[in-house]
């Protein structure tokens, strides 16, 4: 089978812009704590009209198989992200090997350090 269905008369223009946001529910990022003692980790996102609904929706979308013990939902617009193109400004240290423990030669005789 194929997912490329031939175009026939009456089908809409295949251009979809996706810029229309009127009436679309806001986006929420979902974080799940797998178990006590571990940090919440990003699981995905979903649309919901408000925070409480987002939490309920997160249960339906992301935790159907005992994925964890706690959920956070955060409005996507509240997340401030760094620009991957500017990664060097945010993640240095490749040129600073002395920040790593392995940079120092410790004789085996003195044991684990």
């Amino acid at each position: 089978m194929t997912y490329s269905v031939p175009q026939v008369a009456g089908e809409a223009e295949s251009k979809v812009t996706g810029t229309e946001t009127n009436g679309v529910w806001p986006l929420w990022e979902v974080f799940i704590r797998q178990k006590r003692g571990l940090a919440h980790v990003h699981a995905g996102s979903l649309h919901a009209p408000d925070a409480d609904s987002a939490l309920l929706a997160a249960r339906d979308v992301y935790t159907r198989r005992v994925e964890g013990v706690s959920i956070w939902v955060v409005a996507s617009t509240d997340i401030v992200a760094s620009d991957p193109d500017e990664a060097p400004a945010f993640f240095e240290a490749i040129e600073k090997p002395y920040r790593h423990a392995t940079h120092y030669d410790i004789p085996d005789e003195v044991g684990q350090m």
Binding site: H103, Y104, I106
Partner: peptide, 15 residues
């Protein structure tokens, strides 16, 4: 994790 670097650089100074 980060303290391990601290201790090793110190021992290296002593050495």
């Amino acid at each position: 994790l980060e303290e391990s670097f601290h201790q090793r650089q110190g021992y290296e100074i002593m050495l």
